[in-house]
Design a protein around this nucleic acid. Sequence first.
RNA 1: GCUGGCGUAGCUCAGUUGGCAGAGCACCUGCCUUGUAAGCAGGUGGUCGCCGGUUCGACUCCGGCCGCCAGCUCCA
Length: 662
Amino acid sequence: MSVRLRLSGGAVREIEDGATPWEVGRAFDPGRAAGAVAARVGARVVDLGRPLGEVAGQEPVEFALLTPSDPQGLEVYRHTCAHVLAQAVRRLYPGTRLAIGPVIADGFYYDMQVRTADGQEVRLTAEDLPRIEREMARVIAEDHPVTREVWDRQRARQAYAEAEDPFKVEIVDGLPPDAEVTVYRQGEFSDLCRGPHMPSTGGIGAFRLLSVAGAYWRGDERRPMLQRIYGTAFPTPEQLERHLWALEEAKRRDHRRLGPELGLFLLREEAAGFPFWLPKGYAIWRELEQWSRELQGPLGYQEVSTPILMRAELWERSGHWGHYRENMFTLERDQEMFAVKPMNCPAHCLLFGSETRSYRDLPLRLAEYGQLARYERSGTLHGLLRVRSLHQDDAHIFVTPEQVSEEIGSVLGLVDRVYATLGMSYEVYLATRPADALGSAEMWDRAEADLAAAVRAAGREPIMSPGEGAFYGPKLEFHVTDALGRRWQCATVQLDWNLPERFDLWYVGPDGERHRPLMLHRAIFGTLERFVGVLIEHFGGAFPTWLAPVQAEVLPIADRHADYALGVAGELRAAGLRVEVDRRPEKVGYRIRAAQMQKVPYMLVVGDREEREGTVAVRSRAGGDAGTRAVAEFAAAVRAEIAERRLPDAGQSTAGGHPGSK
RNA sequence: GCUGGCGUAGCUCAGUUGGCAGAGCACCUGCCUUGUAAGCAGGUGGUCGCCGGUUCGACUCCGGCCGCCAGCUCCA
C-alpha cells in the first residue's frame, strides 16, 4: 500500500505507507530535515517517526516538515520541553505524581504533586528551579529518543492505578471512548500524552523555568492543590534572552509600578480594591469622561444619576439578590437590608417605568457615570484591573425588537471609534447562556444570534465563549491585553430580555397596545478604573498629549527668568493646556530629566534669549530638542494636536519647529 | 476565598546567631544662577503592617489578623 503526499513544491508523490515523515523529509527536503521537530500531514501535526499509513491515504494531502520556527513546530518543541521538566522533577523527587503539562502562549507549564520517594509532599520555591534546570540540561545532554506507544485503555488505567497516579487515571477515564491512548517514552521516563513530540530530547536548544505557583487540580478549589511550574523554551539562546528581556520590559510598564511613580493613583490597605485618585490620575479620568460625553451626546444618550444605596427589595425584584448577592456590599439599618449598587440597570428600569413610554420615545438611552461597588474575593484584587470600586461609562438602551440590530451596530461603531483613537487592538467574544440563566431557551437562542449577526455586520468574527454570559442575558465582551499578556474585558454589550419583564416595563406601540421593550446594557471603556490601568500599560505611561496629566513643563534657566516662565505658563493655561513650572534651583539638565521621567510631552526651556524674543525652546518627550517657537504658535499647535486626539508617534513631535527655526 | 511567598523612611532596598534601626533616590536648607536626561554640602523623616505570646531584652522566634505578590477561582 502507499499514500499520496503533496510536497512543499506542489508535486504529489506516491510514498510507501510504512515510511515515516522523517524519511520523506530527509529525501525531499534535506535542508529542513536537520532541524525538524514534527511534520504536518494534512491538518494533523504528527511525530517524525509515525508511519505515514496511519495518517494519510490515497487522497493527496499536504506534507511539510515543522521546525521550532513554525508556530506549530514551536508548540511541539515546548511540549517536549515540558516532558523534560517532568522527567527532571521525577529524578529529583521520585514520588512525584504528574497531572497535566500543556503548552501555553509563551511557553509551557506542568502541574504536579511533587513528592519524595516515600510519598512526602515537597513545597518547591523559586530557589529550587535552578536545580531542576540543571537536571533538565542533563536530560537534554543525554539525548534520549522519544518514542510513541499505543496502549490498551484498560492496561493504561491499570498501570496508572498501580503506580498510584490518580491524576493520570482520571485523565484516562475522561478520554472519549474512541480515543487512542498513547504514551510517550524518553529514557526511564514515560508520560500519558496525546503528542506529538520531538524525535529526541537532545534537540532542545534554550529553555528557562520561570516560576512556581499553586494550581488546583482541574481548577477546582475543592480538589488537591498542585504545584505548577512555568517555563519557556526557544530554538536559540538569543531568542530566549530576547523573550526574557521582553518580560522585564513588561514589568516596567506595569500600571501598579507606573501609577504611583507618575503620581496617578494610590492603593492603600485602608480601602483594598478602592483606588485613591491623585490630581494627575484624575486629570486623565476627567479627560476620558468628557470625551465619552462628547461622543455619546450626539448619538442621543441622556445622562442621569441614580441612588448608590437602595433597599434589598429592589434587588430581589431585579433578580440580583438571588444571582449576585455574593458580589454585593450590603448593610442593615433600622432592621432593613440595603445594598450598594453593583450595577445601574435596576435603577434605570425604575426610571423607564416612571412614565408612560411611547414607541416614539425609543430607543431611550440612559447613561450614567456614577460609582458602583462590587465585592471581589480578596485574592482576586489586582491593581486597577480588578477592583471593588467601579465607575462605568454605563448606559442602558430600551428598544423595540426591531431596533436591536441597528442599535447594537451603533454601539459597535462607538467601540471601534474609541479603541481606534487610542491605537488599541481588541478581540470580540460572544458569551452565551450560563448554567444559572434566567429566561427561556428561545429567548437566549435569539439573543445570541442577534449579537453574533451584529458583530459580523461590523466586519468582525466573534470568538465564542460558551456558558460565560450573564444570568440575565448573553453578552459581547471586548478584550484587550495588558503589559503581561493577560487579557481583560473592557467594553461590553449585553442583551437583556429579563429585566424589562421583571420590572413590567412597557411602551405603547403604533397599534395602541402595550409592548415589552428590550434592554441593552453597554459600556465602552467598561470600568474607568480598569480602563485607565490598561491605558497606563498600553502607553507605558507616555500618554498622548490630550490625555497627559501635565502637557507642558516650563523650565526657567535661572531665577531671573521665573517671571517670564510664569507668564508663559499663564498664557498656555489660558489656552486650555495643563502646564507646570519647575523653578527648583537645579541645573536645566536635572529638571529635564525629571520631566522626561514623568513623561511630560513638552518641555519648554526659557532663558534670556526666549524672554527677549517672546518665545519658548521646545523639547519634546519623544524627539528631544525641537527648536524655538513663539508662545502663541506653540499653543496653537498643541491645541490642534489635542483637538485631534493625536497619538504619540515615536521620534516625532508636532508642536516644535525644526531645530534652529523660529 | 484557597495554596505559597512577602510586609523595614514617600520610593527602591540592606539589616550577622535576639542586644539602642541603615543606604540611595525623593523632600527641606544653604551654596551655585544654571542652556536640553542626575552640580556640591548639610538636614528632616521609621510604633520595623496590626494585635497577642515567648524572653532580662523581639525588626529578628511563635500564634492570630490585615494588606500585597504569583497562581487557582471569579469577573467589568
